[in-house]
Amino acid sequence: MKQDTLYQYILGIADNSLILGQRLGELCGHGPTLETDIAITNISLDLIGQTRSYYQYAAGLSDEGITEDDIAFLRKEREYRNVLLVEQPNTHFGYVMVRQFFFDVFHLLFLKELQQSADETLVAIANKAVKEVGYHQRFSSDWIKRLGDGTEESHQKVQEAVNDLWRYTDELFYMTEADKAMFNNDIGVDLSHLKDTYYETITTVLSDATLAVPDNTYFQKGGKDGIHTEHMGYLLSDLQYMQRTYPNMNW
């Protein structure tokens, strides 16, 4: 492939949207209120839409005549590049919102930088996505505050989710070889540069929500190099079910 590094870079961005969109899709029809149900489905829909734009671009770079669906459905687990955070299960609404919040804050900072990329297609995708993700972050931050500063029960539940998911935040700033190469070409984003602002925003919202910022500094990573948590295989067996069972068909 002529532009293999760019291809890998795009997948690294898009896989986060695909896997989080997939996770949120599991919740459709099961939300605590109809309004949150609609909002969460909407976020899922935005993320799947972004995924399609990235994969369509990536598919065009490949000289193997592949489609967005080949990229989405027909890779092995080790070939998915998403961070571990987004594949974590929907343990309860607190986990769903904390996972969302931890990702949204990163996602928004990332897209704002990607808008400055030398790659026009990525800029166009980022320009559209940044509006959507701005809304996602408002939604998840508001819920972190409601749950944190709501009842004793909600405070305890959301704190538990914050503590559990905290270890997956550092990986957001880990740079793969493709990330570094694309940054050096003025196409990619310098992730390390986002880190301070990220933790500042997180700390501000958690404090507003009367939640404690974990002092745990033992972080997990691996997803961006294709080494996932045990949850990933099950997620993929749902995601890939049709394409694996009925290969080479149009739907």
Binding site: L147, G150, S154
Partner: peptide
């Protein structure tokens, strides 16, 4: 509905 009660309670309390 029942599993989401704590979430709705939190929103009200907040």
């Amino acid at each position: 509905w029942e599993g989401g009660a704590w979430v709705r309670d939190a929103a009200m309390a907040y």
